[in-house]
Write a protein that binds this DNA or RNA. Structure first.
Lengths: 338, 338
DNA sequence: GTCTGGCACTCTTCACATCCGAGTGCCAGC
DNA sequence: GCTGGCACTCGGATGTGAAGAGTGCCAGAC
């Protein structure tokens, strides 16, 4: 177990290193934080912290930098979440209030988050399966071709073409549309499969094929994981990453383009509350020197998707967490209003 | 006027520099290209080319590199467009054929273009104003709240909320829907304003407010320039940019995030045929050391949007132009089929 | 026991000097 | 108009040395 002072030393090291980006030595520490002890004592503490694996030195005769384990302890035990100031809150709200549709909300959120944290922002579109159905529309585009349009309470719109096995009359179409909506409107998408399973039975034999086809298209749309979309912004902030660019930045950019990786990452994060993943805790290789702060957001009590920030492990965790939490909260409000 | 051989020398310089990324000297040139003359002669030619501003030397006692003007001459007079090979064509087609909806087409195109050229790819979504209307749908979400959904022949779907001044009955809604579609379905978006202007007159006084509101929302959607969307990919390729990263890459990433800049750039490019903008020909400061190769694509004879590539001025122009042209062609086909 | 000051030691970093070679420009000659 | 030769320039690589930051350890003080 680490003594109270050693924890303070670790906290000081993290704070200084985050600020200066340079290994921090015992003397500098005692000067910048009044720990009430001499450098020599701090050196002993540092040696102990290093033994425990919380800090490391890049080379002999250099200061110490925190390890992933050190950051983990810092985040879990030593740091709080820094709340946004009043002006910041108002700025967030103003910035988001002007959005005209869902795309715009997501785009603005990404920009905002990137600006606030000066890091790479990632925002997931509201998931279909966790949303509720606002409306299902069926359009006849050609005698045997329908378009299925899904609209969620979060404003997301999804469309799919349906090729019918047989021509489908206008009256059957209206009938199906009405029945579909009366069953699923206002319900959660995850309940939809159960709610529509006996629907084909209500139709004439000749229409049943088409009805089944429509329903299976509907269900497919909900299941398809590749419909989990996300938007990324602030990649220019990657250039503030470190001094040894090419090697550091490239794998990160590649990982960001692989949306699958990010979606997996967000998916693994806890469903409620904020999640921080640090360095090697992230399975994906290219992101081993980054940390990801993410949190769910939603219009009601429950999260419909996640958003977060990708930055260097050496990041201002309290500030980043504060910004992420605040933005998530306001986005949730905006979605609830629309 | 430059002699034939001097043009050959310029061509050789461009090719070598693009290949090696290093200033090319007179000796290396005579060795790699059999120009039939000695290095000394080439030196004279180089001096002339430098006087004319086609090449420059980073420092005395270094080889020459092409200037923007040199690349311009190369692209205009000295290089053709390198056609794709058979296997490449097939790969393109296979890659694009699997797309399920417009988002998917655009996403695949971006990936493909980035991979083929190993540069940053930019694809604009089909413009609304140049597309034709497939269908207009009106949904009643609440007594005085409608949703307007536009569907284009290119598969693009756009939706807008409409708050009605007065409750709008189901029969009026059906009437408006029918009248709207009979007038505009199959027509070009740019003709829509003219086609609907007298529509309110066909309705009862009490509904006229809502009809007008719906129409103005419809027209706004068409005009709004911020509805010009685009997708970007392959930013990881920026890391192959040069040796002096941070300074070079940062402004480019920033410019890429400013979609406005890119849209303007694409918009300025010629409407038909391929456009190449080199270095300082690009107005935006951050892109002064990049070149942009762009071309329109479309389902019919006419372009509905543009796509292209952003890369270092030192790029393989013939190859890039070949890839861009080929991809645009296939995307056009895909859109026409859907 | 714990903290402190002192001291020797280790390494990195930076400045400065040097050397090497690629590439040039120019000139005289073919 | 082309070529070979030659002096010159300058950037990049290499090496050396001094400076400085930081460490680890130890003996002594509280």
């Amino acid at each position: 177990m680490l003594s109270e002072r050693r924890l303070q030393v670790l906290r000081a090291i993290v704070q200084d290193y985050v600020g200066t980006e340079e290994p921090v030595g015992s003397k500098a520490l005692t000067e910048r934080h009044n720990l009430g002890v001499s450098p020599a004592t701090v050196r002993n503490d540092m040696a102990a912290l290093e033994d425990e694996g919380y800090i490391a030195q890049p080379h002999t005769s250099a200061g110490r930098i925190p390890t992933d384990k050190g950051y983990r302890l810092f985040v879990d035990k030593l740091a709080g979440v820094k709340p946004m100031t009043g002006p910041e809150r108002r700025a967030i709200q103003n910035f988001l209030d002007g959005a005209v549709d869902l795309d715009d909300v997501v785009a603005r959120t990404v920009r905002l988050l990137a600006q606030l944290t000066r890091q790479v922002a990632v925002v997931q579109y509201p998931s279909l399966t966790r949303s509720t159905v606002r409306h299902v529309e069926l359009l006849s585009l050609a005698p045997a071709r329908l378009m299925l349009v899904l609209i969620t309470d979060t404003g997301r719109v999804e469309q799919r073409m349906v090729d019918c096995p047989a021509p489908f009359g206008e009256s059957s179409l209206a009938d199906l549309r009405a029945r579909l909506n009366s069953r699923v409107a206002g319900r959660r998408f995850s309940d939809v499969p159960r709610l529509v399973e006996d629907l084909p039975e209500a139709f004439e034999a000749e229409d049943r094929g088409t009805v089944t086809m429509v329903l299976s298209t509907l269900l497919e749309t909900l299941v398809e994981e590749n419909e989990e979309r996300l938007m990324i912004g602030g990649t220019a902030n990657l250039t503030r990453f470190g001094h040894d660019f090419p090697l550091t930045i490239r794998p990160v950019l590649e990982a960001l383009e692989e949306q699958v990786v990010l979606l997996k990452l967000l998916g693994e994060a806890g469903d409620s509350g904020m999640t921080v993943r640090i360095g090697h805790e992230i399975a994906h290789e290219g992101l081993n020197s980054t940390s990801v702060v993410s949190v769910g957001y939603g219009s009601g009590g429950e999260a419909v998707a996640k958003l977060g920030v990708v930055g260097p492990t050496r990041m201002d965790y309290p500030g980043t967490m504060g910004a992420v939490r605040a933005v998530a909260r306001y986005v949730g409000q905006i979605l609830a209003e629309s």
